[in-house]
C-alpha cells in the first residue's frame, strides 16, 4: 500500500459518500445519471468476485464491501425510493450504456491476463470502469450548469483515478515484477475522459463562476 493508492481509495470513497449525501440530504437525484450508477454497480460486482475466495487484507475486504454496498444503495435509491425516484429525469439520461457493457465484455474476451472466468470478469470490470462515467458526462453537458455536489462527485472520481496512475508509476518504479498494463492503460483512458471536464471545472473555479459545459 502506498500513499497514492490510499489517497486514491479515499477520494473514491469520498466521491461515493458525496453522492449518497446529495441524494439523502436533498432527497433528489436530479443531475445524476442512473446509467452511470448502474455501470458502477456492475463494475464492483464483477471485480470483487474474489471477495470470499481471496483474503488480501482487512482494509481490502472492508472497502470492497463498502463500494458494493454503496453503489447498490445508490441504484436502489434512484430506482425504487418513492421520493427520490420521481426526481430522476430519464429523458436526459439517454446514453445507450448497454453498448458499453457489451463492448467491454467483448474486449475482455480478447484482452485479459488469463482466460479464466474471474480474470475475464476482472478485465471487463476494468474496461467498464474506464467508460462508466460517460453517461454522467453526457448528462452534465446536456443539462448545462449543474449543482455543486454533482460536480464535486465527478471531480473526486477523476482525482481517484489520477492518484491511481501515480500509484502505478510508483509501483512500477519500486516493484520489479510489477506489470499491470490492463489496469494502467484503462486508467489512463479513464482519466483522459475526465480531462476536459477537469479543464472546465478549473476554469469555472478560477473565475468563481458556476460550471458551464459547452453544449
Amino acid at each position: 500500500m502506498n500513499i497514492f493508492r490510499f489517497a486514491g481509495d479515499m477520494t473514491h470513497l469520498i466521491s461515493i459518500l458525496v453522492l449518497l449525501l446529495k441524494i439523502y440530504a436533498t432527497k433528489s437525484c436530479s443531475g445524476i445519471s442512473l446509467k452511470t450508477q448502474e455501470l458502477y454497480a456492475i463494475v464492483f460486482v464483477a471485480r470483487y468476485l474474489d471477495l470470499f475466495t481471496d483474503f488480501i487484507s482487512v482494509y481490502n475486504t472492508v472497502m470492497k464491501l463498502v463500494f458494493i454496498g454503496c453503489s447498490l444503495a445508490i441504484v436502489w435509491c434512484m430506482r425504487l425510493h418513492r421520493v427520490v425516484r420521481r426526481t430522476y429525469n430519464k429523458d436526459v439520461d439517454t446514453f445507450r450504456h448497454y453498448f458499453l457493457v457489451l463492448g467491454c465484455f467483448l474486449l475482455a474476451l480478447f484482452v485479459h491476463e488469463k482466460f479464466t472466468f474471474q480474470e475475464v470478469l476482472w478485465a471487463f470490470s476494468i474496461y467498464l470502469e474506464a467508460v462508466a462515467i460517460l453517461p454522467q458526462l453526457v448528462l452534465l453537458q446536456r443539462s448545462g450548469n449543474v449543482d455543486n455536489l454533482t460536480v464535486q462527485y465527478v471531480f473526486f472520481l477523476g482525482a481517484y483515478r489520477a492518484f491511481y496512475i501515480l500509484n502505478w508509476i510508483y509501483r512500477y518504479l519500486t516493484e520489479p515484477h510489477f506489470g499491470r498494463w490492463i489496469a494502467s492503460v484503462a486508467g489512463l483512458v479513464q482519466t483522459a475522459l475526465y480531462a476536459d471536464f477537469f479543464y472546465y471545472y478549473f476554469i469555472s473555479w478560477k473565475n468563481n463562476a458556476k460550471l458551464q459545459l459547452p453544449a
Binding site: 481471496d54 488480501i56 487484507s57 481490502n60 491511481y164
Partner: peptide, 10 residues
C-alpha cells in the same frame, strides 16, 4: 499482513 496477489488493488 497483506498478501501480494495480482489483484491486490481495489
Amino acid at each position: 499482513l497483506e498478501k501480494i496477489s495480482n489483484h491486490d488493488e481495489l
